[in-house]
Nucleic acid binder design. Structure first.
Lengths: 143, 143
DNA sequence: ATCGATTGGGTTGTGCACAATTCAATCGCG
DNA sequence: CGCGATTGAATTGTGCACAACCCAATCGAT
């Protein structure tokens, strides 16, 4: 038995990498990465966002999101604009090309869940909850 | 309910980042990262390795491991040498400084497991197995 | 023994993740 | 109103993760 097989941390680290790898394969036709897909998913489901609201949803800071959104903009899928009400705020919205992706690309996360053997709603819900609780305990402790 | 709360992938991604964040905090006194800690853990438990055997254990390629091990070498914790039997192979072993770290640093993964609420052996084992199976299904599918 | 194929490791380039810093816009307290 | 504090993004720098590529050492089939 390898050392790493005794560590929860390693099984998480490994599962997360396997997941992004599966996304890489399925998203390759559009040149999208997994975090870029997440941004698009949020825009598809919840409409226009700001850098800050994306950061809240994904738990990422502007140091990660700012260049990531710039690449999505360069790819033509989103548009950025300074808010008129508050010049500090940058809004991020879908372009027509970004909206057009939805039909073919949005279902990818369902395909991944199926590949992972997480097609059953209850079981998936249970694992999500377990991982969210684990995450919350770690974040609470990390102060 | 946020979009991301419905995705297994996101809960994995999030839990993995929370874990490395917890490691970052606990490893800060030694300037070690989580992947660096993993390499040291393998060396402590299983003795001298090669770049290849580390790659097998951690599922990483030389493009990641090569600079990572170089940084561990620059920090003085490991030493690298070409194998005399096969000049292609690079062996990685602990220095005295690397061995000396073991007593204080090795227990970190147990502390993290406790913070994550995974102190119970059976429950931890169950989650590890579940994640390993999920990982295996994704890797099998990703061809 | 030779030469084509394989293997082990390194390098380069791209994109996340995160700390730390900067800066302008806004807020709030007096 | 005025000004110090806060906020929202962006930038810089470090370190992983991974694809693509390179090269030298070794293997293997003849």
């Amino acid at each position: 038995m390898a050392v790493t097989d005794e560590m929860v941390c390693f099984s998480l680290y490994s599962a997360a990498r396997a997941t992004t790898q599966a996304y890489r394969t399925l998203l390759a036709p559009w040149g999208l990465t997994y975090p870029q897909y997440l941004v698009l998913a949020i825009l598809w489901m919840e409409g226009e966002q700001t850098i800050g609201s994306l950061g809240d949803a994904m738990q990422l800071d502007s140091g990660t999101l700012s260049p990531l959104v710039r690449r999505l903009e360069q790819a033509g899928f989103v548009a950025r604009a300074r808010s008129t009400a508050d010049e500090r705020v940058v809004t991020v919205g879908l372009t027509d090309a970004g909206t057009a992706l939805r039909a073919e690309v949005a279902p990818v996360h369902t395909k991944i869940a199926a590949l992972a053997g997480m097609q059953d709603d209850d079981e998936r819900r249970r694992l999500i909850t377990e991982l969210q609780e684990l995450t919350a305990r770690l974040q609470r402790a990390d102060h």
